[in-house]
Design a protein around this nucleic acid. Structure first.
Lengths: 248, 248
DNA sequence: CGTAAACTTGAATCCACTCAACCTCTGTGG
DNA sequence: CCACAGAGGTTGAGTGGATTCAAGTTTACG
Protein backbone atom coordinates (compact mmCIF):
# COMPACT_ATOMS: atom_id res chain seq x y z
CA UNK A 1 0.00 0.00 0.00
CA UNK A 2 1.49 3.33 -1.02
CA UNK A 3 0.54 6.81 0.09
CA UNK A 4 -3.09 7.50 -0.72
CA UNK A 5 -5.28 10.54 -0.74
CA UNK A 6 -8.86 10.25 0.22
CA UNK A 7 -11.51 12.52 1.56
CA UNK A 8 -11.89 11.39 5.14
CA UNK A 9 -12.65 13.22 8.30
CA UNK A 10 -13.78 16.82 8.18
CA UNK A 11 -12.57 19.32 10.74
CA UNK A 12 -16.05 19.31 12.20
CA UNK A 13 -15.84 15.62 12.97
CA UNK A 14 -12.13 15.57 13.77
CA UNK A 15 -11.62 13.09 16.59
CA UNK A 16 -8.65 14.96 17.99
CA UNK A 17 -10.67 18.00 18.98
CA UNK A 18 -12.50 16.19 21.71
CA UNK A 19 -9.40 15.71 23.85
CA UNK A 20 -8.99 18.45 26.35
CA UNK A 21 -5.28 18.56 25.68
CA UNK A 22 -6.30 20.96 22.94
CA UNK A 23 -7.99 24.32 23.29
CA UNK A 24 -11.51 24.31 21.84
CA UNK A 25 -12.31 25.67 18.39
CA UNK A 26 -14.80 28.45 17.86
CA UNK A 27 -17.37 28.06 15.10
CA UNK A 28 -15.50 30.60 13.03
CA UNK A 29 -12.21 28.82 13.39
CA UNK A 30 -13.81 25.54 12.55
CA UNK A 31 -15.24 26.96 9.36
CA UNK A 32 -11.93 28.46 8.36
CA UNK A 33 -9.95 25.31 9.06
CA UNK A 34 -12.29 23.51 6.74
CA UNK A 35 -11.08 25.73 3.92
CA UNK A 36 -7.47 25.62 5.07
CA UNK A 37 -7.37 21.86 4.99
CA UNK A 38 -6.77 20.55 1.50
CA UNK A 39 -6.90 16.84 2.07
CA UNK A 40 -5.69 13.85 3.95
CA UNK A 41 -2.56 11.79 3.53
CA UNK A 42 -2.05 8.22 4.52
CA UNK A 43 1.48 6.85 4.57
CA UNK A 44 2.99 3.51 5.48
CA UNK A 45 5.33 3.12 8.37
CA UNK A 46 8.87 3.88 7.36
CA UNK A 47 7.86 6.67 5.00
CA UNK A 48 9.68 9.96 5.04
CA UNK A 49 7.09 12.73 5.30
CA UNK A 50 9.45 15.69 5.19
CA UNK A 51 13.10 15.63 4.25
CA UNK A 52 15.80 17.80 5.75
CA UNK A 53 16.80 20.50 3.28
CA UNK A 54 13.63 20.21 1.24
CA UNK A 55 11.00 22.91 0.93
CA UNK A 56 7.73 21.08 1.11
CA UNK A 57 4.70 22.81 -0.39
CA UNK A 58 2.61 21.15 2.28
CA UNK A 59 2.18 21.40 6.01
CA UNK A 60 0.57 18.76 8.16
CA UNK A 61 -1.21 18.02 11.36
CA UNK A 62 -0.83 14.44 12.49
CA UNK A 63 -4.23 12.81 12.84
CA UNK A 64 -3.13 9.32 13.73
CA UNK A 65 0.10 7.41 14.10
CA UNK A 66 3.52 8.28 15.46
CA UNK A 67 6.84 9.28 14.04
CA UNK A 68 10.18 10.94 14.63
CA UNK A 69 11.80 14.22 13.75
CA UNK A 70 15.50 13.67 13.26
CA UNK A 71 18.71 15.09 11.90
CA UNK A 72 21.63 13.21 10.45
CA UNK A 73 25.09 14.55 11.20
CA UNK A 74 28.00 14.43 8.80
CA UNK A 75 29.47 11.73 11.00
CA UNK A 76 26.54 9.55 10.03
CA UNK A 77 25.07 9.60 13.51
CA UNK A 78 21.37 10.25 13.85
CA UNK A 79 19.74 12.48 16.43
CA UNK A 80 16.04 12.15 17.03
CA UNK A 81 14.94 15.68 17.92
CA UNK A 82 11.65 14.52 19.31
CA UNK A 83 8.79 12.14 18.73
CA UNK A 84 5.73 13.11 16.76
CA UNK A 85 2.26 12.32 18.08
CA UNK A 86 -1.31 12.90 16.95
CA UNK A 87 -2.13 16.58 17.16
CA UNK A 88 1.41 17.70 16.35
CA UNK A 89 1.90 20.20 13.57
CA UNK A 90 4.82 19.46 11.24
CA UNK A 91 6.40 21.49 8.49
CA UNK A 92 6.34 24.90 10.13
CA UNK A 93 10.05 25.41 9.47
CA UNK A 94 9.65 24.79 5.77
CA UNK A 95 6.62 27.04 5.86
CA UNK A 96 8.42 29.95 7.47
CA UNK A 97 12.13 29.59 6.77
CA UNK A 98 11.90 28.05 3.34
CA UNK A 99 13.34 24.64 4.08
CA UNK A 100 13.14 21.91 6.65
CA UNK A 101 15.98 21.74 9.13
CA UNK A 102 15.22 18.15 10.03
CA UNK A 103 13.44 15.16 8.55
CA UNK A 104 10.15 13.69 9.67
CA UNK A 105 9.54 9.98 9.35
CA UNK A 106 6.48 7.88 10.10
CA UNK A 107 7.27 5.10 12.55
CA UNK A 108 3.81 3.59 12.32
CA UNK A 109 1.29 3.92 9.53
CA UNK A 110 0.16 7.49 9.70
CA UNK A 111 -2.72 9.71 8.70
CA UNK A 112 -2.08 13.40 8.24
CA UNK A 113 -4.23 16.41 7.66
CA UNK A 114 -2.78 18.38 4.75
CA UNK A 115 -2.51 22.16 4.37
CA UNK A 116 -1.04 24.23 1.59
CA UNK A 117 1.98 26.28 2.43
CA UNK A 118 0.75 29.06 0.16
CA UNK A 119 -2.29 29.42 2.36
CA UNK A 120 -0.18 30.35 5.35
CA UNK A 121 -0.27 33.99 4.43
CA UNK A 122 -4.03 33.88 4.12
CA UNK A 123 -4.11 32.52 7.62
CA UNK A 124 -2.01 35.36 8.94
CA UNK A 125 -3.83 38.09 7.06
CA UNK A 126 -7.42 36.97 7.58
CA UNK A 127 -7.41 34.84 10.72
CA UNK A 128 -5.26 36.45 13.37
CA UNK A 129 -6.59 34.20 16.09
CA UNK A 130 -5.34 31.17 14.15
CA UNK A 131 -2.04 32.91 13.49
CA UNK A 132 -1.79 33.51 17.20
CA UNK A 133 -2.41 29.84 17.82
CA UNK A 134 0.24 28.86 15.32
CA UNK A 135 2.79 30.97 17.13
CA UNK A 136 1.60 29.43 20.36
CA UNK A 137 2.29 26.01 18.91
CA UNK A 138 5.78 27.11 17.96
CA UNK A 139 6.32 28.37 21.50
CA UNK A 140 5.15 25.08 22.97
CA UNK A 141 7.55 23.25 20.69
CA UNK A 142 10.34 25.51 21.79
CA UNK A 143 9.49 24.70 25.37
CA UNK A 144 9.72 20.97 24.81
CA UNK A 145 12.98 21.23 22.96
CA UNK A 146 14.34 23.23 25.88
CA UNK A 147 13.33 20.44 28.21
CA UNK A 148 15.05 17.95 25.98
CA UNK A 149 18.23 19.97 26.04
CA UNK A 150 18.09 19.94 29.81
CA UNK A 151 17.67 16.18 29.73
CA UNK A 152 20.58 15.52 27.44
CA UNK A 153 22.76 17.96 29.30
CA UNK A 154 21.98 17.23 32.92
CA UNK A 155 20.32 13.84 33.36
CA UNK A 156 22.11 10.51 33.47
CA UNK A 157 21.00 7.55 31.40
CA UNK A 158 18.42 6.23 33.84
CA UNK A 159 16.89 9.65 34.40
CA UNK A 160 16.79 10.35 30.71
CA UNK A 161 14.99 7.15 29.88
CA UNK A 162 12.58 7.58 32.75
CA UNK A 163 11.96 11.14 31.59
CA UNK A 164 11.27 10.09 28.02
CA UNK A 165 8.95 7.26 29.01
CA UNK A 166 6.91 9.52 31.27
CA UNK A 167 6.64 12.21 28.61
CA UNK A 168 5.59 9.72 25.94
CA UNK A 169 3.11 8.11 28.28
CA UNK A 170 1.52 11.39 29.34
CA UNK A 171 1.20 12.62 25.82
CA UNK A 172 -0.41 9.44 24.55
CA UNK A 173 -2.82 9.26 27.43
CA UNK A 174 -3.81 12.86 26.83
CA UNK A 175 -4.67 11.99 23.25
CA UNK A 176 -6.77 9.01 24.18
CA UNK A 177 -4.35 6.18 23.53
CA UNK A 178 -4.00 3.08 25.68
CA UNK A 179 -5.83 2.29 28.85
CA UNK A 180 -4.91 2.11 32.47
CA UNK A 181 -1.16 2.14 32.92
CA UNK A 182 -0.38 0.89 29.43
CA UNK A 183 0.01 2.73 26.13
CA UNK A 184 1.03 1.53 22.67
CA UNK A 185 4.57 2.59 21.72
CA UNK A 186 5.97 1.18 18.52
CA UNK A 187 9.28 2.95 18.45
CA UNK A 188 12.39 0.81 18.45
CA UNK A 189 14.95 0.92 21.23
CA UNK A 190 17.25 2.46 18.67
CA UNK A 191 14.87 5.39 18.25
CA UNK A 192 14.86 6.03 21.96
CA UNK A 193 18.64 5.71 22.07
CA UNK A 194 19.00 8.23 19.23
CA UNK A 195 16.60 10.59 20.95
CA UNK A 196 18.48 10.53 24.23
CA UNK A 197 22.03 10.47 22.97
CA UNK A 198 22.67 7.00 24.38
CA UNK A 199 24.03 3.88 22.76
CA UNK A 200 21.62 1.12 21.88
CA UNK A 201 23.34 -1.28 24.25
CA UNK A 202 23.17 1.05 27.20
CA UNK A 203 19.58 1.94 26.45
CA UNK A 204 18.69 -1.72 26.46
CA UNK A 205 20.41 -2.34 29.78
CA UNK A 206 18.87 0.71 31.37
CA UNK A 207 15.40 -0.33 30.27
CA UNK A 208 16.01 -3.65 31.94
CA UNK A 209 17.08 -1.91 35.09
CA UNK A 210 13.84 0.06 35.12
CA UNK A 211 11.93 -3.14 34.62
CA UNK A 212 13.82 -4.77 37.49
CA UNK A 213 12.79 -1.87 39.68
CA UNK A 214 9.21 -2.55 38.73
CA UNK A 215 8.78 0.93 37.31
CA UNK A 216 8.42 0.41 33.58
CA UNK A 217 7.95 -2.43 31.13
CA UNK A 218 8.20 -1.93 27.39
CA UNK A 219 7.71 -5.01 25.26
CA UNK A 220 6.01 -5.83 22.01
CA UNK A 221 4.98 -2.26 21.44
CA UNK A 222 3.32 -1.87 24.82
CA UNK A 223 4.66 0.50 27.40
CA UNK A 224 3.45 -0.08 30.92
CA UNK A 225 4.26 2.35 33.72
CA UNK A 226 3.32 0.78 37.02
CA UNK A 227 4.32 3.57 39.31
CA UNK A 228 4.07 6.76 37.35
CA UNK A 229 4.71 9.08 40.28
CA UNK A 230 7.79 7.21 41.34
CA UNK A 231 9.13 7.14 37.81
CA UNK A 232 8.49 10.85 37.42
CA UNK A 233 10.36 11.50 40.62
CA UNK A 234 13.31 9.46 39.44
CA UNK A 235 13.24 11.47 36.22
CA UNK A 236 13.26 14.75 38.13
CA UNK A 237 9.99 15.77 36.53
CA UNK A 238 7.83 18.19 38.43
CA UNK A 239 4.30 16.86 38.17
CA UNK A 240 2.61 19.75 36.44
CA UNK A 241 0.91 17.72 33.75
CA UNK A 242 0.38 18.80 30.20
CA UNK A 243 -0.88 22.27 29.49
CA UNK A 244 -3.65 22.91 27.00
CA UNK A 245 -2.41 23.96 23.61
CA UNK A 246 -3.92 24.88 20.26
CA UNK A 247 -4.50 22.37 17.52
CA UNK A 248 -4.14 23.07 13.83
CA UNK B 1 23.72 51.35 39.10
CA UNK B 2 20.32 49.73 39.08
CA UNK B 3 17.97 49.11 36.18
CA UNK B 4 17.01 52.35 34.55
CA UNK B 5 14.43 53.41 32.05
CA UNK B 6 15.25 56.11 29.61
CA UNK B 7 14.12 57.13 26.18
CA UNK B 8 16.99 56.12 23.95
CA UNK B 9 17.13 54.89 20.43
CA UNK B 10 14.03 54.99 18.27
CA UNK B 11 13.22 52.14 15.93
CA UNK B 12 14.07 54.44 13.06
CA UNK B 13 17.61 54.87 14.29
CA UNK B 14 17.99 51.36 15.69
CA UNK B 15 21.57 50.27 15.06
CA UNK B 16 20.64 46.61 14.76
CA UNK B 17 18.63 47.09 11.60
CA UNK B 18 21.65 47.88 9.51
CA UNK B 19 23.09 44.38 9.81
CA UNK B 20 22.06 42.18 6.97
CA UNK B 21 21.53 39.29 9.34
CA UNK B 22 18.09 40.81 9.69
CA UNK B 23 15.45 41.22 7.01
CA UNK B 24 14.78 44.89 6.23
CA UNK B 25 11.82 46.78 7.65
CA UNK B 26 9.22 48.42 5.46
CA UNK B 27 8.17 51.97 6.28
CA UNK B 28 4.88 50.64 7.59
CA UNK B 29 6.52 48.15 9.85
CA UNK B 30 8.90 50.77 11.12
CA UNK B 31 6.04 53.06 11.99
CA UNK B 32 4.16 50.32 13.77
CA UNK B 33 7.17 49.12 15.74
CA UNK B 34 7.53 52.65 17.01
CA UNK B 35 4.14 52.32 18.64
CA UNK B 36 4.76 48.76 19.78
CA UNK B 37 7.92 49.68 21.61
CA UNK B 38 7.17 51.12 25.02
CA UNK B 39 10.64 51.90 26.23
CA UNK B 40 14.13 50.80 26.88
CA UNK B 41 15.59 48.88 29.76
CA UNK B 42 19.14 48.92 30.96
CA UNK B 43 20.23 46.25 33.40
CA UNK B 44 23.51 45.41 35.06
CA UNK B 45 25.32 42.21 34.39
CA UNK B 46 24.07 39.44 36.63
CA UNK B 47 20.47 40.68 36.53
CA UNK B 48 17.64 38.25 35.95
CA UNK B 49 15.50 39.60 33.15
CA UNK B 50 12.87 36.88 33.12
CA UNK B 51 12.33 34.23 35.74
CA UNK B 52 11.23 30.67 35.08
CA UNK B 53 7.61 30.25 36.12
CA UNK B 54 6.87 33.96 36.06
CA UNK B 55 4.48 35.65 33.66
CA UNK B 56 6.21 38.81 32.66
CA UNK B 57 4.00 41.63 31.37
CA UNK B 58 6.87 42.60 29.11
CA UNK B 59 8.63 41.22 26.10
CA UNK B 60 12.04 42.27 24.91
CA UNK B 61 14.38 42.52 22.01
CA UNK B 62 18.01 42.62 23.03
CA UNK B 63 19.66 45.77 21.76
CA UNK B 64 23.06 45.34 23.29
CA UNK B 65 24.83 42.90 25.57
CA UNK B 66 24.71 39.15 26.01
CA UNK B 67 23.02 36.72 28.31
CA UNK B 68 21.86 33.18 28.89
CA UNK B 69 18.57 31.35 28.88
CA UNK B 70 18.68 28.57 31.43
CA UNK B 71 16.68 26.10 33.44
CA UNK B 72 17.45 24.77 36.87
CA UNK B 73 16.61 21.13 37.57
CA UNK B 74 15.41 19.79 40.86
CA UNK B 75 18.83 18.24 41.29
CA UNK B 76 20.23 21.74 41.43
CA UNK B 77 22.05 21.36 38.15
CA UNK B 78 21.77 24.18 35.67
CA UNK B 79 21.27 23.83 31.93
CA UNK B 80 21.95 26.77 29.70
CA UNK B 81 19.44 26.39 26.87
CA UNK B 82 21.24 28.87 24.68
CA UNK B 83 23.01 32.17 24.68
CA UNK B 84 21.21 35.41 24.03
CA UNK B 85 22.66 37.95 21.63
CA UNK B 86 21.66 41.37 20.29
CA UNK B 87 18.66 41.02 18.02
CA UNK B 88 17.20 38.09 19.95
CA UNK B 89 13.62 38.30 21.07
CA UNK B 90 12.94 37.08 24.60
CA UNK B 91 9.75 36.46 26.47
CA UNK B 92 7.71 34.87 23.72
CA UNK B 93 6.84 31.88 25.90
CA UNK B 94 5.43 34.06 28.61
CA UNK B 95 3.64 36.02 25.93
CA UNK B 96 1.98 33.00 24.39
CA UNK B 97 1.83 30.27 27.01
CA UNK B 98 1.34 32.42 30.06
CA UNK B 99 4.60 31.76 31.84
CA UNK B 100 8.27 31.45 31.15
CA UNK B 101 9.65 27.95 30.94
CA UNK B 102 13.19 29.13 31.53
CA UNK B 103 14.98 32.09 33.03
CA UNK B 104 16.91 34.76 31.18
CA UNK B 105 19.90 36.39 32.78
CA UNK B 106 22.15 39.19 31.60
CA UNK B 107 25.79 38.12 31.52
CA UNK B 108 27.02 41.55 30.54
CA UNK B 109 25.33 44.89 31.06
CA UNK B 110 22.42 44.85 28.72
CA UNK B 111 20.07 47.18 26.91
CA UNK B 112 16.68 45.88 25.89
CA UNK B 113 13.88 47.19 23.81
CA UNK B 114 10.63 46.78 25.76
CA UNK B 115 7.20 45.75 24.45
CA UNK B 116 3.95 45.25 26.28
CA UNK B 117 2.59 41.76 26.33
CA UNK B 118 -0.93 43.12 26.05
CA UNK B 119 -0.02 44.61 22.71
CA UNK B 120 0.71 41.21 21.23
CA UNK B 121 -2.86 40.76 20.17
CA UNK B 122 -2.84 44.14 18.49
CA UNK B 123 0.16 42.95 16.55
CA UNK B 124 -1.60 39.81 15.38
CA UNK B 125 -4.87 41.49 14.53
CA UNK B 126 -3.57 44.62 12.81
CA UNK B 127 -0.13 43.73 11.53
CA UNK B 128 -0.14 40.28 10.04
CA UNK B 129 3.25 40.74 8.42
CA UNK B 130 4.75 41.37 11.84
CA UNK B 131 2.86 38.40 13.25
CA UNK B 132 4.29 36.33 10.44
CA UNK B 133 7.75 37.53 11.35
CA UNK B 134 7.21 36.68 14.98
CA UNK B 135 6.31 33.12 14.06
CA UNK B 136 9.35 33.05 11.81
CA UNK B 137 11.47 34.02 14.78
CA UNK B 138 9.95 31.20 16.79
CA UNK B 139 10.73 28.79 13.96
CA UNK B 140 14.33 29.95 13.80
CA UNK B 141 14.63 29.46 17.52
CA UNK B 142 13.23 25.98 17.17
CA UNK B 143 15.82 25.26 14.53
CA UNK B 144 18.69 26.31 16.75
CA UNK B 145 17.42 24.30 19.68
CA UNK B 146 17.23 21.30 17.40
CA UNK B 147 20.85 21.80 16.47
CA UNK B 148 21.76 22.03 20.11
CA UNK B 149 19.99 18.77 20.81
CA UNK B 150 22.01 17.16 18.06
CA UNK B 151 25.17 18.53 19.62
CA UNK B 152 24.45 17.29 23.10
CA UNK B 153 23.31 13.94 21.79
CA UNK B 154 25.86 13.15 19.12
CA UNK B 155 29.01 15.21 19.50
CA UNK B 156 31.85 14.53 21.90
CA UNK B 157 33.31 17.20 24.14
CA UNK B 158 35.77 18.59 21.63
CA UNK B 159 33.20 18.75 18.86
CA UNK B 160 30.66 20.37 21.15
CA UNK B 161 32.99 23.11 22.24
CA UNK B 162 34.20 23.72 18.71
CA UNK B 163 30.56 23.84 17.60
CA UNK B 164 29.59 26.35 20.27
CA UNK B 165 32.57 28.59 19.62
CA UNK B 166 31.89 28.70 15.90
CA UNK B 167 28.21 29.46 16.43
CA UNK B 168 28.94 32.22 18.92
CA UNK B 169 31.58 33.67 16.68
CA UNK B 170 29.40 33.69 13.58
CA UNK B 171 26.50 35.26 15.37
CA UNK B 172 28.57 38.02 16.89
CA UNK B 173 30.32 38.82 13.63
CA UNK B 174 26.94 38.99 11.90
CA UNK B 175 25.83 41.60 14.41
CA UNK B 176 28.89 43.74 14.00
CA UNK B 177 30.90 42.71 17.04
CA UNK B 178 34.65 42.21 17.09
CA UNK B 179 37.03 42.52 14.20
CA UNK B 180 39.09 40.12 12.20
CA UNK B 181 39.20 36.72 13.83
CA UNK B 182 38.40 37.99 17.32
CA UNK B 183 35.11 38.71 19.04
CA UNK B 184 34.26 39.75 22.61
CA UNK B 185 32.79 36.89 24.66
CA UNK B 186 32.27 37.55 28.33
CA UNK B 187 30.64 34.29 29.32
CA UNK B 188 32.37 32.20 31.94
CA UNK B 189 33.69 28.73 31.26
CA UNK B 190 30.99 27.54 33.60
CA UNK B 191 28.34 28.99 31.30
CA UNK B 192 29.77 27.13 28.35
CA UNK B 193 30.01 23.95 30.41
CA UNK B 194 26.38 24.28 31.48
CA UNK B 195 25.33 24.91 27.90
CA UNK B 196 27.07 21.84 26.58
CA UNK B 197 26.37 19.40 29.38
CA UNK B 198 30.04 19.13 30.30
CA UNK B 199 31.81 19.52 33.60
CA UNK B 200 33.75 22.69 34.21
CA UNK B 201 36.98 20.76 34.51
CA UNK B 202 36.59 18.97 31.24
CA UNK B 203 35.49 22.15 29.49
CA UNK B 204 38.63 23.85 30.69
CA UNK B 205 40.87 21.04 29.52
CA UNK B 206 39.18 20.80 26.16
CA UNK B 207 39.52 24.53 25.60
CA UNK B 208 43.23 24.12 26.26
CA UNK B 209 43.40 21.30 23.77
CA UNK B 210 41.80 23.52 21.13
CA UNK B 211 44.30 26.23 21.94
CA UNK B 212 47.15 23.73 21.64
CA UNK B 213 45.88 22.83 18.19
CA UNK B 214 46.04 26.50 17.29
CA UNK B 215 42.34 26.59 16.50
CA UNK B 216 40.82 28.74 19.20
CA UNK B 217 41.95 31.00 22.00
CA UNK B 218 39.55 32.37 24.58
CA UNK B 219 41.05 34.57 27.26
CA UNK B 220 40.06 37.73 29.05
CA UNK B 221 36.75 37.92 27.28
CA UNK B 222 38.25 37.70 23.81
CA UNK B 223 37.56 34.74 21.59
CA UNK B 224 39.94 34.30 18.70
CA UNK B 225 39.34 31.71 16.02
CA UNK B 226 42.43 31.40 13.89
CA UNK B 227 41.23 28.76 11.49
CA UNK B 228 37.49 29.05 11.32
CA UNK B 229 37.04 26.56 8.50
CA UNK B 230 39.13 23.93 10.21
CA UNK B 231 37.31 24.43 13.48
CA UNK B 232 33.96 24.19 11.73
CA UNK B 233 35.05 20.96 10.12
CA UNK B 234 36.10 19.52 13.45
CA UNK B 235 32.69 20.54 14.80
CA UNK B 236 30.91 18.81 11.92
CA UNK B 237 29.26 22.06 10.90
CA UNK B 238 28.27 22.39 7.30
CA UNK B 239 29.33 25.86 6.21
CA UNK B 240 26.00 27.34 5.26
CA UNK B 241 26.36 30.54 7.21
CA UNK B 242 23.58 32.36 8.97
CA UNK B 243 20.30 32.85 7.23
CA UNK B 244 18.48 36.18 7.27
CA UNK B 245 15.79 36.38 9.88
CA UNK B 246 13.29 38.98 11.07
CA UNK B 247 13.99 41.40 13.86
CA UNK B 248 11.45 42.61 16.39
C1' DC C 1 46.06 43.38 51.96
C1' DG C 2 42.47 40.09 52.24
C1' DT C 3 38.66 37.94 50.10
C1' DA C 4 35.96 36.13 46.44
C1' DA C 5 35.32 34.72 41.70
C1' DA C 6 37.18 32.56 37.87
C1' DC C 7 40.37 29.65 36.08
C1' DT C 8 44.01 25.55 36.32
C1' DT C 9 45.94 21.30 37.34
C1' DG C 10 46.42 16.39 38.82
C1' DA C 11 44.58 11.98 40.34
C1' DA C 12 41.23 8.50 40.95
C1' DT C 13 36.91 6.75 39.57
C1' DC C 14 32.97 5.37 36.88
C1' DC C 15 29.34 5.76 33.55
C1' DA C 16 28.49 4.84 29.15
C1' DC C 17 30.72 3.34 24.90
C1' DT C 18 32.42 0.02 21.45
C1' DC C 19 33.09 -4.50 20.00
C1' DA C 20 31.48 -8.92 19.23
C1' DA C 21 28.34 -12.59 19.70
C1' DC C 22 24.11 -14.60 20.17
C1' DC C 23 19.06 -15.00 20.49
C1' DT C 24 14.24 -14.60 18.81
C1' DC C 25 11.10 -13.59 15.89
C1' DT C 26 8.81 -13.10 11.19
C1' DG C 27 8.42 -13.38 6.51
C1' DT C 28 9.85 -15.67 2.24
C1' DG C 29 11.11 -18.70 -1.35
C1' DG C 30 12.83 -23.28 -2.83
C1' DC D 1 7.65 -27.59 5.27
C1' DC D 2 12.01 -26.17 6.22
C1' DA D 3 16.14 -23.21 5.37
C1' DC D 4 17.55 -18.80 5.26
C1' DA D 5 17.81 -13.85 5.81
C1' DG D 6 16.97 -9.65 8.09
C1' DA D 7 15.35 -6.80 11.84
C1' DG D 8 15.10 -6.06 16.51
C1' DG D 9 16.55 -7.24 20.84
C1' DT D 10 19.95 -9.28 24.52
C1' DT D 11 24.31 -10.25 26.82
C1' DG D 12 29.29 -10.00 28.28
C1' DA D 13 33.89 -8.06 28.24
C1' DG D 14 37.05 -4.47 27.88
C1' DT D 15 37.96 0.40 27.20
C1' DG D 16 37.98 5.24 27.54
C1' DG D 17 35.97 9.85 27.76
C1' DA D 18 34.20 12.60 31.09
C1' DT D 19 33.29 13.00 35.95
C1' DT D 20 34.22 14.11 40.76
C1' DC D 21 37.32 15.42 44.26
C1' DA D 22 40.73 18.27 45.95
C1' DA D 23 44.18 21.75 45.64
C1' DG D 24 46.24 25.37 43.63
C1' DT D 25 46.86 29.87 40.93
C1' DT D 26 45.49 34.20 39.11
C1' DT D 27 42.84 38.33 38.93
C1' DA D 28 39.74 41.98 40.40
C1' DC D 29 38.39 44.83 43.90
C1' DG D 30 36.90 47.01 48.43
Amino acid sequence: MGPTNMPGITCKTCPLRKHNLFTPFSEDELAFMGTFKTGELRVDRGSTILLEGSSSPQLFTVLDGMGTRYKTLESGRRQVINFVFPGDFVGLQAGMMGEMKHSVEATTDMTLCVFRRDDLWRLFSHHPERAYDLTWIAAVEEHFLGETIASLGQRDAMQRIAWALVRIFERLKATGYGKGDTVPVHFRQQDLADALGLSLVHTNKTLQALKAKGLATWRDGKLQLRKLAELAELALIDPEGLQQRPLM
